[in-house]
C-alpha cells in the first residue's frame, strides 16, 4: 500500500497549497488535486464505480467553483488573527483526536472487514438479481431505500439552490 501513502501525502500537500495560496483560481485548482488523488486512491483500492463517480463529480465541482469564484470580489481576509477561535479549534481538535484514538483501536484492521451482511450479498447477489455489477445490484436492489434517500437529497439540493437564488423576497 505504498502508493496509497504517497497519494495521501500528495493530497495533503494539495490541501495545504489550497489554503496558503493568495490567488483564488490557484486555490481552486489546488483543491482539485485532493479530489483527483482521492479518485486514484479509489482505483488502487479496486473500487472503479467510486473512482468514476469521484472523478466526474470533482470535474463538475471544479467547473462550478471556477465559475463562482472567478472575477468576483469575495471578501478574503489575509490579515488579522482571532486568538479565541484558534484556541477553540485546537482544543476541539485535540479532544477529537484523543477520543478517536480509543475508538479507532476497536475497529477491525484495514482491509479486513467483518463481512457479516456483505457475505450474503457477495454469494447470492448475482443469482438473485442477475446483475453482474454487484455494486449496482446492492444499491438498486438490496439497498434501494438508500438510493431513494440519495435521490431525495439531490432533489432537495436543487430545490434549495432554486430557493436561495430566487429574486422575490430578497428585498
Amino acid at each position: 500500500m505504498l502508493e496509497l501513502e504517497f497519494l495521501i501525502i500528495f493530497m495533503i500537500l494539495g490541501a495545504i497549497i489550497a489554503i496558503e495560496t493568495k490567488d483564488m483560481l490557484s486555490s481552486v485548482v489546488a483543491v482539485g488535486i485532493s479530489g483527483l488523488g482521492l479518485s486514484l486512491a479509489f482505483l488502487f483500492l479496486k473500487a472503479p464505480d467510486l473512482a468514476i463517480t469521484q472523478l466526474v463529480v470533482e470535474i463538475l465541482c471544479l467547473i462550478i467553483l471556477i465559475r463562482a469564484t472567478l472575477r468576483r470580489d469575495l471578501p478574503f481576509s489575509t490579515s488579522g488573527r482571532w486568538y479565541f477561535n484558534t484556541t477553540v479549534t485546537f482544543v476541539f481538535l485535540g479532544a477529537f483526536l484523543f477520543l478517536s484514538y480509543f475508538i479507532l483501536k476497536e475497529l477491525p484492521s484495514f482491509g479486513q472487514p467483518l463481512m457479516r451482511v456483505s457475505e450474503f450479498y457477495l454469494n447470492q447477489g448475482k443469482n438473485l438479481t442477475k446483475a453482474t455489477n454487484l455494486v449496482t445490484s446492492i444499491i438498486l436492489n438490496f439497498r434501494a431505500y438508500d438510493t431513494l434517500g440519495e435521490a431525495t437529497v439531490l432533489f432537495t439540493a436543487v430545490i434549495g439552490v432554486l430557493a436561495v437564488v430566487r429574486k422575490i423576497g430578497r428585498k
Partner: peptide, 12 residues
Amino acid sequence: HISPGGGFAGGV
C-alpha cells in the same frame, strides 16, 4: 448493471 458506472456517474 454490467460494467462499472451506473445512474449517478452516467448522469453526471
